[in-house]
Simulated scan of single mutants.
Amino acid sequence: MAKAKTPSGRRTQTAQPVIAGNAVAADASPPKKRTSIPQFASQVRAEGRKIVWPSRKETWITSVMVFIMVAIAVVFFFVIDFGLARLSSFILAIGS
């Protein structure tokens, strides 16, 4: 079977084919140890302390930018809808 070459130049083993419905296991890693509820809660608190929250000013500026982009989208889609409505009524008027 051909082996793929990695960027470092080393060759790696490619996936093994399925034989009679059973896959051949290349690397059997041991199952992960389960985390207890208190340990999970302490890990969540530790990750929560790493969060960098935006300031009031950053939140305000971002909110204003979102409202501006929504207003631009509303105007854009209104113009497109109005134009397509006029075009379709013009085309339908030709046939009558």
Rank of each mutant, 00 (worst) to 15 (best):
R49P: 01
S36D: 09
I51N: 01
V64T: 03
V66Y: 09
P54Y: 00
V74K: 06
F76R: 07
V75F: 14
R86E: 12
S89L: 15
L87M: 15
I68Y: 11
G83F: 03
A85H: 12
A73Q: 09
F82W: 10
G48R: 15
R34S: 13
D27H: 15
S89G: 11
V70D: 13
I37K: 04
R49S: 14
V70R: 03
S89R: 12
N22A: 04
F76L: 14
M69A: 15
K50P: 00
K50A: 06
A28G: 06
V44P: 02
R56E: 10
D27V: 06
A73T: 09
K33T: 09
A26I: 08
G48Y: 14
T35D: 08
F78S: 13
W60A: 04
F77E: 10
D27F: 12
S36T: 12
A25S: 14
A26S: 09
I80G: 01
F77R: 00
K50D: 02
I37P: 03
P54K: 09
I80K: 03
W60Q: 01
R86Q: 09
Q43D: 11
I19E: 05
L87R: 15
L84K: 00
S36N: 06
I37T: 04
S88G: 09
Q39W: 05
R86G: 12
P54M: 02
Q39T: 06
K57P: 05
P54C: 03
F76Y: 06
A46M: 11
S29Q: 13
A46T: 02
K32T: 01
L84T: 05
W60P: 06
G48M: 11
I72C: 08
E47W: 11
G83N: 02
S88M: 15
A20K: 14
A26R: 14
A46Q: 15
I61F: 02
S88C: 10
S89T: 07
T62S: 13
F76W: 13
T59K: 06
A73F: 11
V75K: 05
V44I: 12
I19M: 13
S29L: 14
P31H: 03
S88L: 14
A28C: 04
V44S: 04
S88P: 03
R34Y: 13
A20R: 13
A25D: 14
F82C: 01
S63K: 14
G83D: 01
K57R: 07
S63L: 03
S63V: 05
P31R: 07
E58R: 07
